[in-house]
Structures are given as structure tokens and as C-alpha cells.
Design a protein around this nucleic acid. Structure first.
Length: 261
DNA sequence: AAGAAGCACAACCGCTGTAAC
DNA sequence: AGTTACAGCGGTTGTGCTTCT
């Protein structure tokens, strides 16, 4: 037997909130705060809404001191840095940006930042001079492990008639001429925390959750993040051993350079 | 001017974690 | 220990606005 639905779906209003509904919810929340039971709340204030919907409306829109839009460069950097280190943990990222909601950041990332970053990646990938001396995809010592194999296969699948692959004769892939699908796939792989192996570690999340480390968008923070990762052993699903972390950091710094170009 | 396509954002859905019993 | 129900999270969808053709 499954869990009982949180509300009577048939008698629940959906879609955009009216000013009247907002006013009811706001006045209740200002009076009683967030200690209330969200599921029971709509009935108390005479709203034909699901409790979850009320909660979301309050947290993402009606709550005081919420900022909408107008993300600063500094905020962009924080979001990018955190996304690259912990992935799509929007609530944790939002906790570092006072006044921002996870939903807002998620939307901003999906609609703008991702494209901006992708553009920067194009710049980075079309300019081999920016590449690290040891390409992390070129000489993966862990082609024997599952991840390496997967990546290798994934690259093989991506390489089509449009690409030019130079081999050193030892089975090592050299320069892969960037093409659109390759870049897109690469960025997907690279930014995906599972793929690049930068799944968050417990202490890292604890630090972020507790907001013990103020993160800013400065170069120092980027270095701080890089050092943090370099100091830790690579996760087992990483591109490689700790060596790869170093490679990643080098690549990350090059990327940072590319990003700023 | 009108329809199509793209974009931004609000809201919903389904799942997981966890507290209470 | 198992069950239930709520809170919270992240992915996805829907909708309205803007830009393009």
C-alpha cells in the first residue's frame, strides 16, 4: 500500500497564485511563522492549495528578503565554483547566497549560466594553448577501470566523420578536433559531478551546510576550492588517482583563464 | 500584423530523509 | 523494527512574455 496523498488532488487549485492567495498566506506566515504544519495550513486559512504548494510559494516568493534576478558577477562565480565542486546541490548553493532561493539559482543556472559556461568552454577547447600539458582525457591511466572504459567508449561514440583524432601510436588519444557534439558531451561529462568524480564528500557538505566557510567569488576562493580538492584523496570513481586531481586542478586553472578571456 | 520559436521563471511532481509513533 | 506522514530537494513541465521571421 502506497503513501496516502498529501491532499485531495481533485479539489486543489493549481497554477499561478493570485494576490489574494498570496495575502492570505503571507499574513498567516507573518503571524505564526514557519512552525506550522504545511499540510494542514491551507485548510486553516481557507486556501484550496496543496500544502507543498504553499510551502514552495512562501519559500520561493513571499518570504522576506528574497532577491529576484539581477545576479551579480560575484554570485555567478560562486554558483559556478560550487556547481563544479558539489554538483546540482541547489539548496547548499543557495545557502551561500543570502536572499537567493534554490529554485531561483536552479533556473538561473539552467537558462543562463550553463550557456555562459558552455561558451567559455568552447573558447577553452578551441584554444589548445590553454589546455593543460597532460590532457585528462588523453592519458587516463585508469582506462582499465569502469569509468575510464566508459569515457573511452563515450569518446569513441562521439568521434565521427567530423572529428580528427591524432594518435601517438600507443593507443593514447591525442588532439581531438573539437566539434559541437563533442564539446556538448564533454561539458556534460565534465560538469556532471558523477562523471568527473567530484561527488561531494561528507565533511565538505558539512562545512557548507553549516556555512562555516564563507565563499566569495574571488580568485582566492577558486584557489581555496582547488587546494581543498588537491588535499583530499580522489574518490574511487574519479578519472584517476590523486594524480588526476592535480591534473584537474591544472585544467581547472586553465579553464579559469579561459573563462576570464 | 501574425504566427513560430525561444526564453525566463513559477509551479508541480515524485522521490528521499527523518521524526514520531 | 516497521510504518506513517511531513519536510525538503532536485528534475521537469507549463505558461506567459519577447523576439524573430
Amino acid at each position: 500500500m502506497g503513501r496516502a496523498p498529501c491532499c485531495d488532488k481533485a479539489n486543489v487549485k493549481k497554477g499561478p497564485w493570485s494576490p489574494e492567495e498570496d495575502a492570505k498566506l503571507r499574513s498567516y506566515m507573518e503571524k505564526y511563522g514557519t512552525r506550522s504544519n504545511w499540510i494542514a495550513l491551507p485548510q486553516k486559512i481557507g486556501l484550496k492549495r496543496c500544502g507543498k504548494s504553499c510551502r514552495l510559494r512562501w519559500l520561493n516568493y513571499l518570504r522576506p528578503n528574497i532577491k529576484h534576478g539581477g545576479f551579480s558577477e560575484e554570485e555567478d562565480n560562486i554558483i559556478c565554483n560550487l556547481y563544479m565542486s558539489i554538483g546540482s546541490r541547489w539548496s547548499i548553493i543557495a545557502a551561500q547566497l543570502p536572499g537567493r532561493t534554490d529554485n531561483d539559482i536552479k533556473n538561473y543556472w539552467n537558462t543562463k549560466l550553463k550557456k555562459k559556461l558552455l561558451g567559455s568552454f568552447s573558447n577553452f577547447y578551441n584554444n589548445p594553448a590553454l589546455w593543460p600539458k597532460i590532457h585528462p582525457l588523453q592519458d587516463c591511466p585508469e582506462t582499465s577501470n569502469a569509468r575510464g572504459f566508459e569515457l573511452d567508449n563515450s569518446l569513441d561514440n562521439l568521434i565521427d566523420s567530423e572529428t580528427v583524432v591524432e594518435s601517438d601510436g600507443n593507443g593514447h588519444r591525442g588532439m581531438v578536433q573539437p566539434v559541437s557534439n563533442f564539446k556538448a558531451k564533454l561539458v556534460d561529462e565534465f560538469l556532471d559531478d558523477k562523471a568527473c568524480g567530484y561527488a561531494p564528500q561528507g565533511d565538505r557538505l558539512a562545512q557548507l551546510d553549516g556555512s562555516n566557510n564563507e565563499v566569495n567569488g574571488s580568485k582566492e576562493s577558486m584557489i581555496w576550492w582547488s587546494n581543498e580538492f588537491a588535499a583530499k584523496p580522489a574518490p574511487s570513481n574519479c578519472w584517476g588517482t590523486s594524480t588526476s586531481v592535480v591534473q584537474f586542478n591544472e585544467m581547472f586553472q586553465n579553464f579559469e583563464f579561459g573563462y576570464n578571456v
